[in-house]
Simulated assay, not measured.
Amino acid sequence: MTPFTFATTPSIVFGAGAAQRIGTLGAERLGPRVLVVTDAGLVRAGLVAPALAALEAAGIAVATFADVVADPPESVVAAAIAAARAHGATGIVGLGGGSSLDVAKLVALIAGSGERLADAYGVGNARGPRLPLMLAPTTAGTGSEVTPISIVTTGAHTKMGVVSPVLLPDVALLDPDLTLGLPAPVTAATGVDAMVHAIEAYTSASANANPVSKALAREALRLLGGAIETACRNGADREARGAMLLGSMLAGQAFANSPVAAVHALAYPLGGHFGIPHGLSNALVLTHVMRFNLPAAAGAYAELGPCAFPDCPPDADAFIARLDALSAAIGLAPRLRDVGVPEDALDLLADDAMGQTRLLVNNPREVTRADAWGIYRAAW
């Protein structure tokens, strides 16, 4: 057995109604002045007000930054940092989807350490210390509450990541009730995103691929595969919502330590150039990347099939077929052309995907530029 390291969020609080404990947890962990980082949609949906009231009832002075947008640009991160400094924040709460949680991580880092965001990009460059941090997801997809990663849009079509264990929060607060109002299309896309995290973690060629991540990935797929159709069909099903949220977190723990690969590398340019949501971008290329990987990963895929779908035989092709059927059943677009990607963009996408070296190095099979183009063509 090869050496490995495994790091995750030190405190995880899970359960229906867990968000009611945000005030108590905040008073214990975050200090007297807290900035809540979220988005305007959650404010309108009424999910933010109870958290603010609970924090205030615990004697905490609270301010809100609600300007997070999907695929947040550097300007949003800078504005949130400025809000934290203006409030004199002693702690940060991230409440929302992956974008809000990613911004909250960077606010805690930069407001706490004073380092420049530009210097933190890359792997292991963020030094800290950061402010105390609690993350409460409202989607079941990114697993950001247990990952040391934050992704920022740095240009018109480019993204960069900050990757450092400093970004792991002090507390992950997982309340399925916060996800009850999630629309079916978002539930579907984010749910498949979480499944991709588990699949890629299980097959990662990273030197830190490890048995802990593999075990978590299998359990994540069991939970996600068994709940995603129910959660999409009946968004008020607390059991399904809880399974999705827990499965997403376990998949996040898995890929945080055994990193993702070509599916994500090919998904990022789709978001950058065409604004396709990250989860849907992953779903569009997932099975095409898996077919490309079969010469190197067929055995691992065969092991995963029955984890996600108990009636699936231990066969890689059968697993891939079931994933395609799942995407169709939950209403995800099947092809790139269906989401507005023109055929003449495939060269651009392939060029950009090859720049994702941080991810491609983890793929079980080497990906050339011609390979990337071929995968996009198959997905088109």
Results as ranks from 00 to 15, higher is better:
3 P>L: 10
5 T>Q: 10
20 Q>V: 02
22 I>Y: 00
23 G>S: 05
25 L>W: 02
28 E>T: 03
29 R>Q: 07
37 V>S: 07
44 R>G: 08
52 L>K: 03
53 A>F: 00
57 A>L: 03
74 E>F: 00
76 V>E: 03
80 A>F: 01
82 A>S: 07
85 R>L: 11
87 H>C: 10
95 L>R: 00
97 G>S: 06
100 S>A: 15
101 L>S: 09
102 D>L: 00
104 A>E: 09
104 A>D: 11
110 I>S: 10
116 R>L: 14
117 L>H: 07
119 D>Q: 11
121 Y>P: 01
123 V>L: 13
127 R>V: 13
129 P>T: 08
135 L>W: 12
139 T>S: 04
145 E>K: 03
146 V>D: 12
148 P>T: 08
151 I>C: 11
153 T>F: 03
153 T>G: 14
156 A>W: 01
162 V>F: 11
166 V>Q: 12
168 L>T: 07
177 D>P: 09
178 L>R: 12
180 L>W: 10
180 L>M: 15
183 P>E: 14
184 A>I: 07
187 T>D: 14
188 A>D: 09
192 V>M: 14
198 A>Y: 13
198 A>G: 14
199 I>W: 02
206 S>K: 07
207 A>K: 04
210 N>V: 08
212 V>D: 06
216 L>V: 03
218 R>P: 03
223 L>A: 08
226 G>M: 06
229 E>L: 05
229 E>P: 04
252 G>F: 05
253 Q>W: 03
254 A>P: 02
256 A>V: 02
266 L>A: 02
267 A>V: 01
268 Y>R: 05
268 Y>C: 01
271 G>N: 06
271 G>V: 00
275 G>H: 09
278 H>S: 06
279 G>S: 09
283 A>C: 08
286 L>G: 04
290 M>G: 06
292 F>D: 10
299 G>V: 03
303 E>F: 06
313 P>K: 08
315 D>P: 11
316 A>K: 00
319 F>K: 02
319 F>I: 04
321 A>E: 15
323 L>A: 13
323 L>R: 06
324 D>E: 15
332 L>Q: 11
333 A>L: 03
334 P>H: 10
339 V>H: 01
349 L>Q: 00
352 D>A: 14
352 D>L: 08
363 N>Y: 08
365 R>L: 12
367 V>D: 08
374 G>E: 11
377 R>W: 12
377 R>T: 15
378 A>H: 11
380 W>D: 11
